[in-house]
Design a binder for these strands. Structure first.
Lengths: 197, 197, 197, 197
DNA sequence: GATGAATGAGTCTTCATTCAT
DNA sequence: GATGAATGAAGACTCATTCAT
């Protein structure tokens, strides 16, 4: 452990506390305690409570985007990419419950944040999806009447709602793989039965 | 009946105020002012601030469910039902911006109470979707390997994210009909190009 | 007592508390206690702690100016006016110890206040003195080479320092009348012995 | 001797910072920065923040007293002494704006300690004035009914208020010499026109 | 001696809620 | 039922001071 990185300690503590109580019901004193630092120490690393929330989002989502992009790069088939995207997204949620809850739940309470800020990093994430669609369309694999701008939101929304279900229910009815497979299949093939020959 | 229903006046005022500032940044005094009543009057109709939020959810979502169910009842084909569901959902969002924003953003709180509460009415809404799927499967129209429990969340999530986009961006790039058609088509037929003849 | 004027109660309490501990060492809770109101009540009447200080100055000095002007009006001889001014000034200090201390001591700590604000009311007070001088000069009673702008400060300063002495020492070595007579005589006749004929 | 006397560096920095922001609004960190030392270093030279203020007063006023006494010693005539005292006092203020502001404004605090402390050095300064008066009275130059204890305060107060005017207004309407001459003349000869021939 | 990161006590201010009228 | 003045608990944030290096 590198000379106890206080910044990171505080961020991780805040993720736990925010996930537990929600942003507005979390007290700085609580985060400080969880991070094993004094209240005032937090203000050596962050400007204010809200700044911690922003930092969580910014730093953590950055890691996620990097990971997903890297993974996408090694896959060719856009159909498989879509499936893998779903799989990774849901896996990350499962592995980072608290973080997922903060992003899912707490960041949405701050409309200021959502309206002004979220777009930058978040748009980047969504655009990974639309890029896949565009690639597939260029290859003739996806229908050309699919609007990538709508698709990216629909696909993300589907995964996101599934995640929320997990995050909030704390009991997982379906496995990550099942959910990823089902959802990607919905979007790839639809649910209408192939009427056969 | 003009005797100004205070309860309703307060609820409507709260929807506006919550949508504007978020739940935690909204003050009772602000709601009272917006509703043209005294601060204390609010406590004759609601137990506390949080109770107003719950009431908004309960009453308003109830109206929506009723409206959607009614509409679904007059449609036969599950494929069309899905499309209409999307269309109605998105239309309601468009017509009730403030309410949509409150539900979208504020009700995502993680308070224990919310976690449990949300499910009741919300589950009812989601189940409209799974019922459609089950009906379609029973009729052999939808694939039998589609898991309704996952589908309902995926479909709702897709619509919900689309709504959030509208609610937050305040500029609508796509029409309700375009979005409803696209999204329902994604889920019905998928996006993979139908090969061959 | 008119329906317990909270505003006045708070102002009077603040004068006592500020005089006792100084502005920066006074706590809102202390003023509230002294005024027999809740902490929050203070904020129904004042914007913040500093606002109380300003209000004290503004309201109380206003009363003083009115009283002094009224008194000056009924005197003809500028020499007597000067004496009476000294007498009233010192009497007021004696009768309003706490207020005098706040104005003397606490208001001087806030340079922002002193630089920007003080001038308005304070200048009005000083100008009562320069008016007396000008009147005396017009009547040929006072030397014409006396600069009223310097005199008003010198005369006020002399009284003010005498007041400070009382306020801070809490033991009065000289009576108001003695001090007023001495000081006004200094300024009227000087201290150089009349060499006589 | 260039080994940067930290004590002096800190005192001078504090004078600037206190003059700028006032004692209570000045931060140790600010003084440290201005003095180019670490925060903690200040505590190697001073017990606490307040101690710096006291030190400023004690050391700087000591220098002033020495300078004034020295000057007085070389003058015979008490009338001239008075004029010179005024001149030196006002000159010092003009040459040491920041210090003057600190002494003027900050040392007027009402803390118990200050009330008592101030007297020691300050009394010494005031007594230079009363000594002049007593000398003049002994020589028959000043009226014997002049009370030196009142005179010293009146004379000092007059100069002090004039100084405050300069310190606060930052624009000087009158020159040091004009002010010194006017004020000393007020006190020596009064402002009443010499009647007769 | 010098540093500056860390501490945590201290306080102003907010605002949901109450209750006398 | 309606009012809105009053309440007071709660908490974010500051900053003088300490102390391990």
């Amino acid at each position: 452990m590198k000379i106890a990185d206080k910044h990171e300690k505080i961020v991780q503590a805040a993720i736990r506390v925010f996930a537990q109580n929600g942003f507005y019901n979390s007290k700085i004193a609580e985060i400080a305690k969880e991070a094993n630092v004094a209240d005032g120490t937090i203000y050596l690393y962050f400007n204010n409570k809200y700044d911690i929330l922003i930092t969580i989002f910014e730093e953590e989502i950055g890691k996620i985007i990097a990971k997903v992009k890297q993974e996408m790069a090694r896959i060719e088939d856009p159909r498989e990419k879509l499936f893998r995207f779903a799989q990774i997204h849901l896996s990350l949620v499962e592995e980072n419950r608290d973080l997922a809850e903060v992003i899912q739940v707490e960041l949405r309470q701050s409309s200021k944040f959502m309206k002004e800020y979220r777009n930058k990093k978040f748009a980047e994430y969504l655009n990974i999806i639309s890029q896949i669609v565009k690639q597939g369309q260029a290859q003739g694999i996806f229908r050309s009447d699919v609007m990538p701008g709508i698709f990216k939101r629909a696909f993300f929304g589907a995964l996101d709602e599934m995640s929320r279900f997990w995050v909030l229910s704390s009991k997982k009815k379906y496995s990550v793989n099942t959910a990823a497979r089902q959802i990607s299949k919905f979007f790839l093939e639809g649910i209408v039965a192939k009427e056969d020959a």
